[in-house]
């Protein structure tokens, strides 16, 4: 059975929307962060499917770059979250309101 590109795209869109909703709705910084990862991976899926459809390697290249960049983001993001956790003993992003206005 050959799965159509459309199916991959639909799936990736669903994942992307789920990720977006996660970022908007979750209050735990780790979960927000994971949702962002989900969005990036939805992108990877879409690109891989498109690359297959166009029969090119460009898309696959793009995926590698995204994976690498995501890893870098993880490093920075987790470091920040740890720093916040040390100070506050909490990673609820609603509790971040030092600045008003």
């Amino acid at each position: 059975m050959v799965v159509q590109t459309e199916a991959f795209i639909m799936l990736s869109m669903v994942l992307f929307v789920l990720g977006t909703l996660g970022v908007l709705l979750k209050r735990n910084a780790i979960l927000v962060f994971m949702s962002i990862e989900l969005m990036l991976n939805a992108t990877n899926l879409a690109i891989a499917a498109f690359a297959h459809q166009w029969g090119q390697v460009d898309g696959h290249l793009f995926v590698f770059f995204i994976i690498t960049v995501a890893a870098a983001e993880v490093a920075v993001g987790l470091a920040l979250i740890v720093a916040i956790f040390r100070a506050k003993r909490s990673i609820n992003i609603d509790e971040l309101h030092q600045m008003e206005g």
Binding site: F50, Q53, I84, L96
Partner: peptide, 27 residues
Amino acid sequence: EEAGIKYFILGAFASAFFVYGAALLYG
């Protein structure tokens, strides 16, 4: 620290939008 994490979350969120848009354009 708060500035850092806020910037990080929204920045990464924005990048995800950008890259998904780029993926669709590529498609």
